[in-house]
Amino acid sequence: MTTRSNLAGYRGKAGDAAGAAAAFEELLADVLRVLGPDHPHTLTTRHNLADWRGKAGDAAGAAATHKEVLADLLRTFGPDHPDPLAIQAQLEYWRQQE
């Protein structure tokens, strides 16, 4: 799964944002099945999916996914964990792009 995540990210960095988003979406199904919804890798995969959706032109989808990830991070790790702050910033960025 790590290799697939890296390949999806490199695909996006090579200029195929839509392909990266599709690859992260496919990966997410397997990550959810194997690791469950609250595993850190699952949350990271969802975050990456949101970013590549936005970079592929779906700012509303990116914002919606970041909003869901933020809620799950807060529920899982609490407000003192550093990841929710980063996701909040991404959420605001994609909301501004809508």
Rank of each mutant, 00 (worst) to 15 (best):
A23Y: 03
T76H: 09
G19K: 07
P82N: 07
L43P: 01
D58M: 11
G57S: 04
E68I: 10
P37V: 06
A21M: 06
M1F: 14
A20L: 12
N6D: 00
R46H: 08
P79V: 15
A20S: 12
F77P: 12
E25D: 11
F24I: 05
A71Q: 08
F24P: 02
G36Y: 09
A50Q: 09
D38C: 03
H66Y: 14
D16L: 01
K67V: 06
G12V: 06
G36C: 12
E92D: 14
V34F: 02
R4T: 11
G12L: 03
F77R: 14
G61F: 15
G78C: 07
L35D: 11
A8D: 07
E25L: 04
N48K: 08
V34W: 04
A59K: 07
A29V: 13
E68F: 04
E92G: 14
A60F: 10
H66P: 01
A14R: 12
I87N: 02
H39Y: 07
T65A: 13
A22Q: 09
L32H: 00
G19T: 05
D80G: 05
T44V: 09
H39V: 02
Q88E: 10
D83M: 13
A14G: 04
P84E: 03
G57C: 06
M1R: 12
G12K: 02
L7F: 10
K13D: 11
D51R: 01
F24D: 04
Y93M: 12
T45G: 05
H39S: 07
T3P: 00
L74K: 15
P40N: 10
G54K: 13
A71T: 09
T2Q: 10
L27C: 06
N6W: 00
L49R: 13
